[in-house]
C-alpha cells in the first residue's frame, strides 16, 4: 500500500531521513515539497541574482540533508532551512562584492523606468534590490516566508520590536520607491 507521507509531521519525516533509503527518499521528497518554495523565495529575493540564488538554494537542501543524516535535533525545519540559506547568502554576499559598471547601472535604471511594460511583482523585486540587506531580509522573512516577529528576531539575532520596525520600514521604503507607479497599478487592478 502506498504511504501518504504528506500526513507525516516534520519531526516524523526527519526521523525517516535517517532510516532506509526508500523511506529516506520519500521523506526528503515530502520535505522538499513543503519547503522548497519559501527557501527559494528567501534566496532569490535576498540575493536578487537568480543565478546565485539557484546555487544557494541547491546548497541549502544538500547541507540540510547532510546535517540531518549526521546530527540533528531541531524541530523547526523551515527555520533550520532558512538559517542554512541565510548563512550561505551572507557568505555569498561577502565573497561576491557587488560592483556594477556605470553603463550597466544606466541600463538598469532605464529598465526600471519602463515600468509600463512590467508587472508589479517585477517592480517589487527591483524595489527590494534597492533596500539595505537588513530591511530586505526582514521583509522577505515576514511577507514571503510568513515568519513571526519572534522567529525573525531569533534568526537575525535582534529584538522583537526591532524586527517589527525593520519590516515596517521596509514596507514604507518599498511603497515610497513604487509610489510613482502605484497610481497605474491601483487603477489597473489587473496585474496583481
Amino acid at each position: 500500500m502506498k504511504i501518504n507521507y504528506s500526513a507525516y509531521s516534520d519531526v516524523e519525516l526527519v526521523a525517516l531521513l535517517k532510516g532506509k533509503k526508500a523511506d529516506c527518499e520519500a521523506a526528503f521528497n515530502e520535505l522538499y515539497k513543503r519547503y522548497a518554495a519559501p527557501v527559494n523565495a528567501y534566496c532569490l529575493r535576498v540575493l536578487g541574482v537568480p543565478e546565485h540564488a539557484e546555487d544557494i538554494f541547491q546548497e541549502t537542501f544538500i547541507k540540510f540533508y547532510q546535517h540531518v543524516r549526521s546530527d540533528y535535533a531541531q524541530t523547526n525545519i523551515q527555520g533550520f532551512l532558512i538559517r542554512i540559506a541565510r548563512n550561505l547568502c551572507l557568505n555569498a554576499k561577502r565573497d561576491r562584492k557587488q560592483t556594477v559598471p556605470i553603463e550597466e547601472l544606466d541600463l538598469w535604471m532605464h529598465e526600471i523606468n519602463s515600468y509600463e511594460k512590467r508587472e508589479f511583482p517585477d517592480l517589487l523585486a527591483m524595489a527590494l534590490d534597492l533596500l539595505d540587506l537588513e530591511y530586505r531580509e526582514a521583509f522577505v522573512l515576514r511577507e514571503y516566508d510568513g515568519f513571526s516577529y519572534e522567529e525573525i528576531s531569533k534568526l537575525c539575532n535582534i529584538t522583537i520590536p526591532n524586527a517589527k520596525t525593520r519590516v515596517f520600514r521596509a514596507k514604507q521604503k518599498i511603497k515610497d520607491i513604487l509610489t510613482p507607479y502605484m497610481g497605474n497599478i491601483l487603477n489597473a487592478k489587473a496585474k496583481i
Binding site: 527559494n40 529575493r45 517589487l124 491601483l186 496583481i192
Partner: peptide, 15 residues
C-alpha cells in the same frame, strides 16, 4: 497592493 504583489510573485516561489 504590496502584500498582493508578494503573493503574486510566482517566480520567487517556484524553484
Amino acid at each position: 497592493a504590496v502584500s498582493r504583489a508578494v503573493r503574486a510573485d510566482i517566480q520567487a516561489f517556484s524553484p
